[in-house]
């Protein structure tokens, strides 16, 4: 094949992207501002009603909590896998990959089985005599967080792991030879080198959380509504224009937060590098 033929090969992908990503996004923008004449009414409604502001803030807050939890829980896991011999790493990665590819709907359903009134946890707690009556665990913010962290954790682990495999372990050995204590070598050599990948993972998890829909709808209560749930509600009521405005705000908030998180992450990374913890 000639060097130029690569453009032809890319054409079908481009068509798919244009028709199913770009054109719908453009039409969304149109729908949010023309109803049928130009109007900013839908965006105005979004920023003037307290309920919608609450939902937006909650979506950001929940996504931040989930991203931070996944990072704190996942980082040592990735580190542990990295310490294992190659052949064992493959097997351990399987344990992370299999739940990652399981349907989110099924994984959320599994939490209903665990946390329900007659669910596993209530039965177990009753069996050991810790509780007399079933505790209400479903339809709480805690249930949503526990499930979202569980669903997104594999992604953060794999991102951290990929970043860590790039690290030359000889550098850590060198630090040790030069007199660094194990903890020092870990904190001043290994951690800074893996920081960039970890921040990338945090941002990816945050971004995916922002669009979460199934888990808050099934495991949360009214107090756990996120932007995506609001969009579905508006679509059911055929309020296309308002739903479109919500969709754009979701995308915008996600992009702004990503830029912010990346910037903050870089700043923190530089500070850690300088101070050496």
């Amino acid at each position: 094949m000639s060097a130029r033929s690569y453009l032809w090969l890319f054409l079908p992908a481009l068509a798919l992207l244009l028709l199913f990503i770009l054109a719908p996004a453009a039409d969304l923008l149109r729908a949010s501002m023309f109803d049928p004449d130009f109007t900013t009414e839908h965006f105005a409604r979004l920023v003037t009603r307290g309920v919608y502001i609450d939902v937006m803030l909650r979506t950001i807050r929940v996504s931040l909590i989930v991203a931070v939890c996944c990072t704190i829980i996942g980082y040592p896991i990735a580190y542990f896998i990295n310490l294992q011999p190659r052949s064992r790493q493959t097997i351990l990665l399987f344990l992370i990959l299999i739940p990652m590819w399981m349907s989110i709907l099924i994984r959320t359903f599994a939490w209903i089985v665990v946390l329900g009134r007659d669910g596993l946890l209530n039965e177990a707690l009753a069996a050991v005599g810790l509780i007399d009556e079933p505790v209400r665990m479903l339809f709480t913010s805690g249930a949503v967080l526990a499930a979202m962290v569980q669903i997104l954790l594999p992604i953060q682990i794999l991102t951290c792991y990929a970043a860590m495999t790039e690290i030359d372990f000889d550098l850590i050995r060198a630090a040790r030879v030069l007199g660094a204590k194990p903890r020092q070598a870990l904190m001043r050599v290994f951690l800074p080198l893996s920081l960039d990948g970890t921040i990338t993972g945090l941002v990816i998890v945050f971004m995916l959380s922002m669009g979460f829909f199934i888990t808050p709808a099934l495991l949360g209560g009214r107090q756990d509504t996120m932007i995506a749930n609001l969009i579905e509600f508006q679509v059911q009521r055929l309020n296309w224009s308002f739903a479109a405005a919500l969709g754009l705000v979701l995308l915008l908030l996600t992009i702004v937060m990503i830029v912010l998180l990346r910037g903050l992450g870089r700043m923190a990374a530089r500070r850690i590098l300088k101070a050496g913890l």
Partner: peptide, 12 residues
Amino acid sequence: IPHIFIALGVLI
């Protein structure tokens, strides 16, 4: 891009 955004755009 959040799936819900794609879904809504494609629907409209």
